[in-house]
Design a binder for these strands. Structure first.
Lengths: 127, 127
DNA sequence: GTCGGTTTTTACAAAGTTTTTACAAGTTCG
DNA sequence: CGAACTTGTAAAAACTTTGTAAAAACCGAC
């Protein structure tokens, strides 16, 4: 009867506190719906879809903002900050800063030994 | 599948305050019949028939006005406003604005989040 | 053609979102 | 330590979308 814009189905994410339904574009933290702006959602979705992987700043700027590598901006940092704020106390658990490279989302109970980037995947996110 | 629909009967909508009989094209608020113009009714009916789903502006303009995506108009906003006015105090409960995307009708006691059930909940973006 | 109601446009106002700015704080490595 | 560089942050600016009132345009019935 009706067809509203459909994306290809990506299985929802869920851990102890956070869940994301990519089809409906809903994120919920401890069963409360998060109200995210578009950019905030896009950023979170990209990070979570690559949970455990480091995503370089450049890749984030490219994918979420369609910025080329020549653009200098702090908007990514600002958005990460706002996302962290909305993730409340779990923020540091979830969104890691990889100094000099980018960010990484970690599922809630991800085993974390020490912060080393050695041997961890740094993904490229081809166009 | 189903039997071939000659007249497709759409089951009436009803919640604590609002009811709509699609066959007779009658809407009632707290048992009082609402006097809606054609466009107002079409808009309300479309929204209510997709209760819980976000309907993008474009889809509304396409379905109710037969406008293509190139047309720039504020008539949708004006109609939403008039609908809200006729929904009285329940307006904000019923018709949500999803910033940058469109509108969503929520049944009166709508569950707020997607949880276990496969319902038809929706986005959180905007607002 | 005129009337009464409906719909659309116009022209801003208001609200929401994103980006920039300017600097503080943190990290790396000599 | 300290210079060079990266990230964090608050606040302002810039930008975008939605809300609203009023006027204009439209339309069918008389």
């Amino acid at each position: 009867m009706e067809s509203l814009p459909m994306h290809n189905h990506i299985p929802p994410y869920r851990d102890e506190h956070l869940s994301i339904d990519y089809d409906q574009e809903i994120a919920a933290l401890d069963s409360e719906r998060m109200t995210l702006t578009r950019k905030e959602y896009d950023l979170l979705a990209l990070l979570v879809q690559h949970a455990g992987e480091i995503i370089p700043r450049e890749a984030l700027l490219m994918r979420v903002w369609s910025y080329g590598s020549e653009i200098r901006t702090r908007t990514l940092d600002v958005h990460v900050r706002r996302l962290r704020k909305k993730l409340g106390g779990y923020a540091d658990q979830y969104i890691e800063t990889i100094f000099g490279i980018g960010y990484r989302f970690q599922p809630f109970h991800a085993p974390r030994f020490f912060q080393s980037t050695v041997g961890k995947p740094v993904i490229a996110l081809g166009a």
